[in-house]
Design a protein around this nucleic acid. Sequence first.
DNA 1: TATGAATGAGAGTTCATTCAT
DNA 2: CATGAATGAACTCTCATTCAT
Lengths: 188, 188, 188, 188
Amino acid sequence: MPQLERGKARVAALMAAAAAVFAEKGYDTATMTEIAAGAGASIGSLYQFFPTKELLAAALHEAYLERLSGELDRLREEAAGRPAAELGDQLFERLADFLAQRPAFVALAERRDIDKARKRATRALLRRQIAAILAQAAPPLPPGAPEVMAVVILHLMRAMITLSGDDEEVGPPAVAVFRRMLRAYLAG
Amino acid sequence: MPQLERGKARVAALMAAAAAVFAEKGYDTATMTEIAAGAGASIGSLYQFFPTKELLAAALHEAYLERLSGELDRLREEAAGRPAAELGDQLFERLADFLAQRPAFVALAERRDIDKARKRATRALLRRQIAAILAQAAPPLPPGAPEVMAVVILHLMRAMITLSGDDEEVGPPAVAVFRRMLRAYLAG
Amino acid sequence: MPQLERGKARVAALMAAAAAVFAEKGYDTATMTEIAAGAGASIGSLYQFFPTKELLAAALHEAYLERLSGELDRLREEAAGRPAAELGDQLFERLADFLAQRPAFVALAERRDIDKARKRATRALLRRQIAAILAQAAPPLPPGAPEVMAVVILHLMRAMITLSGDDEEVGPPAVAVFRRMLRAYLAG
Amino acid sequence: MPQLERGKARVAALMAAAAAVFAEKGYDTATMTEIAAGAGASIGSLYQFFPTKELLAAALHEAYLERLSGELDRLREEAAGRPAAELGDQLFERLADFLAQRPAFVALAERRDIDKARKRATRALLRRQIAAILAQAAPPLPPGAPEVMAVVILHLMRAMITLSGDDEEVGPPAVAVFRRMLRAYLAG
DNA sequence: TATGAATGAGAGTTCATTCAT
DNA sequence: CATGAATGAACTCTCATTCAT
């Protein structure tokens, strides 16, 4: 919606501020006022571009999903013919990176006012992309396995996130275990 | 705090209502008014027993934790000398049951206004109990493993919960995989 | 909704204040804040009883309509067998009185966010009551006439209202003319 | 204010859009943004020509009044020497037409932020013009009657407008009655 | 002039919490 | 203890209007 250069910069600043606030407080507790302030904008300016708190969240979420989708596409291209365990490792690493750099992602993905169907659709999309990657493994996984493993990986990622907020002593080894479990399972 | 019989019934009803509302709407979105109404009580009455929304949540959470703690204690007694994989299975099942019956648990465990230290402490407690169970496995797990596996199990449980809200087609196989992964890992 | 005596008094005060503000500023321009202040209540108190500006307006409107309906019922009982012109005069007078004492009535009846069907229904009700009165005239009006005359009278009343806001020099004679026109028409 | 051709077209488009929006939503509820959009212009452009919402409304109202005034002037010229009832009929018809084609007129005439004196003055002007027409009736109306009847006619017009928004079954007969009432009254 | 971004006072509404009865 | 009314800070959102380009 922004047409001028100035507007584009504003929108970028607003989304960045929104990401920060959503990450820190969660969707419900985040306030539009704080987001606007965080971007050095007036509340009116925020609403000029995002007519609703929900729409703001949706826009940010969408942007994240597109980026993630692109990254998975790229990974699929690179990864044809590799062994499954290695693919799992790659996925693990890249997804973890992606999420670590976007701490608002989970808050956005789980906000309650998102409608169920949409949520499901979004998850299905990601699942399919990850399954597509795993389907390229050589030797190939048994039929059906890529889809199930996609779900597994996605949920492991969720666990990862929480883990990074955990104790430092206990987190890293657990991450390693998750990784090994996945590797072992994919290897055979 | 309640001294009379009547008071105890009130408190029970209030906590039940709170559990229902927290489960349905999440901590932030739940309102004290709705909770009171759900228990057939007036707001005034609710505040008589729980002087704060946060205290209400804390009380409910505490109650859940105690119950869970008890269950884990019992499991530890029963489980001495079993193989690790079997213990993992047992834990898996019992924890899943526990959470399935208390859908407010996660919402309470993750509410944002809880102070970090307390959160950490709570998690540490559970971890220790689970580790204690795993430490009784025969043959024994390598040193340090029970603690790490406790973390892993706890996070798998979290994944489980989310999974139950997922598509029906894709959820159950993923649960099975998690189970098998854990089993395999604990077995060797 | 108010259950205690105190609450009933509040509601009465709030409705009175609302009537005053709606009358003075019209529905759109009236503010909930001003209404609350006018009743010596806090904004929260106002919302306790009227969860929406629209509902407040609706409640007030409803109350007015009920009162008016009662008045018309009474008039019908008293008026059986009188000549039509006299009934017209009576209606004219009573309705004018009613509206003069409730300057918010028109503002409420015409607010834009009321749904069309409801508006129509309300008007139809009043029309029917007035027609019922005119139908009792002796000698009787021709068939169909009471219904049409009811519409005419209702619209004359609307004109009356506006007229009272007009110049003082020109208003009263015009009112008199309206009255005579109606009389003449009903007389033959 | 607009000096170029382009400017005049802009102003015309803006006023047309304003008329449409005022008619549909009423003065209070109409927004400058929607008006600008309706004219295919930017807000900045709208404010270039009409520095205030109120001034925009005033300009539109003024334009309408001038047009109406012209029409009444023409009618006065045509109508000298006709019987009063016929003049009433003519007025009735022309005014109704005028208003039917300009649904924003009433909204503009009744907006609340217009100052009372101005409102009164405007009404007085129209009244005088209508009275001037009626004063030309032959045989002449009694002294004072034209002024009073002008008021009456003006208010009947208002009723007319509302009537056209009413039920279709009940509107037209009522219009006819109004017409007949006026005719009869003017005839004697 | 034209455009679209920027501003911020103010409106409606919510809800945890307190108080009077 | 119970009830329900009272309070007001805080929140989301709107819109007339101003400004920079």
